[in-house]
Computed example of a mutant assay.
Amino acid sequence: MRNITKWYTFLLMIMVVALILGGCSSSNDSSNSDSATSSSNGAAAAADSFENQSVATENSASSSSAEAPTAVAGEAGSGSIGEIAAEGTGTAMNQKLIYKANLTIEAVDYDKAATALRNAIHQSEGYILQFQDGQYNGEKSSTYTIKVPAAGFMAFIDRLDGIEHKKFERQISGTDVTEEYVDLQSRLTAQQVVEERLLAFMDKATKADDLVKFSEQLSTVQENIERLKGRIRYLDNNVSYSTIELRLYQPDAKAETKDKEDGIGDKMSEAINDSVDAMISVLQGLLVFIAGALPILLLLFIIGVPVYWLRGRSRARNKSMPSIPPQTPVTPSVKEETEEDDPNHPNG
């Protein structure tokens, strides 16, 4: 009896275990089917709400960069930020500084100073970005826009101070663009993440409408990426190479020597030169007046000569004609009148 009970209990346990295993397998099958359905629905939902996801990704990346700028800078720019900082700025914490300088040099000898300036640019491994020269009223001058490596910025300015000069003016300024640079790097990283997601969605898309939508969004994202890269390259160039605006000039040497001249001989010579210059100016003014009045004088000559000739001819004609004296009435004199009236006169 005891043996029968044992075998009955053993069979009952086997049946319970079989039922448990069957329930587990059915639950696994249903969960797998449910997960497949949910994944397909999730892909469709991702295609519809991609714009919101991309905006959220970019905003989250920007906020993380604002909270921890040093960590983002080290991660995104490993190999670029550190190298440029060590190469150009020489400051701690990977700061991005742009140096500019405005210099004015009054040279003793313009040609020698220009040669020394070109040598200094060559020694500093810089280059001339813009150049303009000229000579006005005896003064020689030229303006330069020079780019030199930031690591040798102050050394280049000290080298220019060695040029023989009468006056050396300089103004140096720096701009910290570290915050802007870190922000650009974080925005670039966010846009690149969006680009990767768009490419993945385009690979999985089967409808033409979805492909068109993804391609338009991808074009906008890639345009933003190129714009960000261009700004980063601009900052890198200006950080690694400092800008120097330089004006080199030499005043008129004759004007300087004229101020130093003195003595009676120099004053007499100057007075004679001034008189000659005044006479030349008067003659020049007279010639200019005659040249301006020449057409009018010629017109008067053409009109006046015939008139004068006609008047002379009429005068000559009047002189050749005989003159007839005017007839005057004869009036008796007083004596004759008294003789005629006197009765005692023998003729009366």
Rank of each mutant, 00 (worst) to 15 (best):
K140S: 07
I296C: 01
L188P: 15
T206V: 14
D236T: 06
Q217I: 06
A86Q: 13
Y241M: 00
T331E: 05
L300D: 09
A107P: 04
D210P: 02
S275L: 09
Q135M: 04
R170M: 09
A291G: 14
I128V: 10
D252Y: 02
V307Y: 04
K254Q: 01
S314I: 03
H165K: 00
I302A: 13
Q53L: 10
L184W: 03
R313Y: 07
E340F: 15
G90C: 01
K254M: 05
I81W: 11
G134S: 07
L97M: 12
T328D: 03
E261N: 04
A255D: 03
E261I: 01
S49G: 03
S40K: 07
F201M: 15
R118A: 03
I157H: 09
S142K: 01
L198R: 06
W309G: 14
S65K: 05
I128H: 06
T104Q: 05
A200T: 05
E139I: 11
N52A: 14
N102T: 04
F289A: 06
A200D: 08
H122F: 13
A47P: 05
R311N: 00
G265A: 10
V282C: 00
S78P: 03
D266L: 06
Q250C: 11
N119Y: 03
I172Y: 02
Q250H: 13
E196L: 07
G126C: 09
P322I: 03
A47K: 15
L184D: 04
A208L: 07
D203E: 09
S215I: 03
D210M: 00
P322K: 02
G134Q: 02
I157R: 11
K213T: 09
R118H: 03
S281W: 07
I303R: 12
T104V: 07
S142E: 04
L188R: 15
R170Y: 06
S54E: 15
S141V: 15
G263R: 00
G138H: 14
P322W: 02
